[in-house]
Simulated assay, not measured.
Amino acid sequence: MPSRTKKTKKTGTAFRAAGMFAALTAVTLALGGCGRLDTTAPSTARAKAATDTRAVAFGTADCREVKCIALTFDAGPSEHSARLLDILKEKQVPATFFLLGRRHIEKYPELVRRMADEGHEVASHTWTHRILTRIPPDEIREELERPNDAIARLTGRRPTLMRPPQGRTDDTVHDICRELGLSEVLWTVTAKDYQTTDSGLITRRVLKQASRDGIILLHDLYDGTVPAVPGIIDALKERGYVFVTVPQLLAPGRAEPDEVYR
């Protein structure tokens, strides 16, 4: 599945064509990239909270009672993020953003602040999108700590969630995440939006896979994705879904650093 590239004068797309996200070609393999580690469903996290005195407050809904789903966006901020935030604000939908550091957080610090200020969950997708299972522990730590430091400086809040590139994790990555207080978050729905500029196709793929407690993976840096978002939101609301952030999906449970959520 070669990643989509095309010649364009747009800075963001030209950067993609340069190959930064060639690694995303295997993104659909990610759910199998979790190695020997088990994953925890949102419903399990909520059930555990029954005996947890640290249970957290609900967000926009009690997902034990209503049909919740989480929109998540990887690899931003990008040239399209401002428009995406406008759409989410108009639709009154919270999202979870797994941000890259180099050339993203660095380039669009004002968008990182805006994401936090408008009630979205701001999390990490590493500094340079290196595959964590292929690098030594000290480099894994750097990939995780640098975006967290940058996000904390911009928002005043250190991320507690991360998404490993391509969803690839193993015991070493898991142990370092736990050491750094980070929970790993995978997904249940992928639109493969790195393959196409067809917003209608992206919408259909999401709607076909959507289910209760779903975690939808999208990338706002691809040209077809943000135009698909309004239709995705409207269609899922018509089906009775309530949109929440990933932490809200787990409430009254909380994301634990020793868990991988999917």
Score class of each variant (00 low, 15 high):
K208Y: 12
V229C: 06
V206Y: 09
G200T: 14
V226Y: 02
I232L: 07
P230Y: 13
L217W: 01
T225S: 13
Y194S: 08
V226D: 08
D198G: 06
Q209F: 03
H219G: 12
I202V: 15
D198S: 11
D213G: 04
I233Y: 04
I232Y: 10
D223I: 12
V229F: 05
I232R: 07
T225M: 05
V206G: 06
Q209A: 14
D198Q: 10
L217E: 11
P227R: 12
D220V: 12
D223P: 00
G224A: 13
S199M: 12
Y194P: 04
Q195A: 15
Q195H: 13
A235K: 13
I233T: 08
G224K: 11
Y194E: 11
T196G: 04
G214K: 02
D220G: 07
T225Y: 05
Q195W: 15
R205T: 11
A210K: 00
S211P: 00
D213W: 12
K192A: 14
D234H: 03
G214M: 02
G231S: 08
R205Q: 14
R212Y: 00
T203A: 06
L221W: 09
G224R: 07
D193L: 10
Y222L: 06
P230M: 11
R212M: 01
V206K: 03
R205K: 12
L201R: 12
I232P: 14
V226W: 08
I216M: 04
I216S: 01
L201V: 08
D220H: 08
I202T: 08
D220N: 14
T196R: 03
L207V: 10
D220L: 08
A228D: 10
L221C: 14
K192R: 15
V229A: 07
D198A: 11
D234Y: 00
S211W: 00
A228G: 07
D223Y: 09
I233P: 01
I233F: 05
A235D: 10
L217G: 07
D198K: 11
L218F: 13
L207I: 11
Q209R: 01
I215K: 00
K192P: 01
T203N: 10
